[in-house]
Design a protein around this nucleic acid. Structure first.
Lengths: 237, 237
DNA sequence: CGATGCGTTGATAACTTTCAAATTTAGTGG
DNA sequence: CCACTAAATTTGAAAGTTATCAACGCATCG
């Protein structure tokens, strides 16, 4: 399966773009409004791609020419550090958009966690559209905004204890994908560990201790039921 | 000294701004080009303010109506967590710009670390200008871009050991303000600790051990001389 | 059925924090 | 300018947390 679209090219800034840049600081809408314009565009203009479990979607240092929207499955972005550890940048669930970079090259790699279907759209095309459609550009801005806030949250998370990190993670996932109180985790313990900056053993032990504390249930390793959110929130700080 | 300018007002998005928004992903210039346009503007349009040591420049949740540029001294942004710990968002040295937020309210507070002189400019005015002057808007974008990348670096830093964090910090500061191999730190050990997510004791001990390892010298607590950068870089990962 | 991957558990080591005290530095008033 | 107090920094010892190494259980799959 040839899933690699990106082709390394010289960097070109269409002058049109450059003129219509930011005024970044003032716009703070969070995509709640107009949430459909970008979606529709991607549906219309995007190509559907399928990536099998653990296959690469894009690699670090490749030109960031495309934007990706998860249709089904789940993706992760990550970076391999010099000491061979892996830091996971984020998990992307159906409806989530990733590949939004702030440079012309990806600073992270991306892989499918499970078999994953994504809509792929050329950033160039999207930018051109954004120049004409304010709601699209607003949404692009809101998107990067959201990434930024998530990163801020992550910084705050990483200075906390293992329990707090795991609790935060569960609450985050619950917010994004819970059915009732149950979460069906698409990612492995190793993924979670690399996301939280912990070891797999610590994640496992922490989940066990949360279960003992009656805050959660873990019927199977990939299925977690939140039993006491306020306890988790208390841990969360 | 009444240093508080910000006044809470309703949020207004001038339609002009909204139309000329992003195309964010494609622009990756890093402020190297055109580095003067924004500077000149701030010089011309900005007001000079002086803040004494430890005084507040702005507070969390206040409207983010101004952009600040350090002329002399040093500022820090920070957030107080629910467990009373303080996380420092960043240190701003002469020439650095802060107060750039991605919402209409500050998500961090800011204080002067030493007696500090800053240029203050209304964001509204800057945005209006950015609509007309592409180089200004490019720089604004480059600024937020830089903040973002620093945040990414921070995430990578926070999953590492105390030694690596301190070594990274020293190299970062050296890059930003070294005179030869010497750094004159404007901030306290507590500031450093809160920046790196460590305790003050760990920071102190780590510096001592780096000194023993002949990687640095610490003639006075605020003055640090780098003796072996490659050793620091090795620690840095 | 054995191999393999993933997750859990246990024991120990390494690292960081906490608490306490000593030491140095900075600031203030005489 | 000195002396004195307060604040900042360093150092030590003990406790707490997380990582590492190792073993085990439990599924899945050929």
């Amino acid at each position: 399966m040839s899933t690699q679209i990106a082709i390394r090219t010289g960097t070109i800034y269409p002058p049109v773009q450059v003129r219509s840049v930011p005024s970044i600081p003032n716009l703070a809408c969070d995509g709640a409004i107009d949430a459909e314009a970008l979606d529709q565009t991607m549906q219309l203009m995007g190509a559907t791609m399928v990536y099998s479990r653990n296959s690469e979607i894009f690699g670090e240092n490749e030109p960031a020419d495309y934007l990706y929207k998860v249709v089904s499955g789940c993706a992760r972005t990550y970076k391999i550090l010099s000491d061979r550890r892996r830091q996971i940048g984020g998990f992307y669930l159906p409806g989530d958009i990733f590949g939004l970079e702030f440079a012309d090259e990806h600073t992270l790699s991306a892989e499918a966690i499970a078999d994953t279907k994504v809509l792929v759209i050329k950033r160039r095309a999207l930018n051109a559209l954004a120049g004409r459609d304010a709601s699209v550009s607003r949404q692009l801005f809101a998107l990067s905004n959201r990434e930024l806030r998530q990163m801020q949250k992550r910084v705050l998370l990483l200075i906390k204890s293992a329990q707090e990190r795991v609790a935060s993670f569960l609450l985050e996932m619950a917010e994004r994908m819970s059915v009732g109180n149950a979460i069906e985790l698409p990612m492995s313990r190793q993924d979670i560990a690399d996301y939280l900056g912990l070891t797999i053993e610590t994640v496992s032990r922490t989940l066990t201790s949360l279960e003992c504390a009656a805050a959660i249930e873990v019927p199977t390793s990939r299925r977690i039921v939140l039993r006491n959110r306020s306890a988790l929130r208390r841990l969360n700080g």
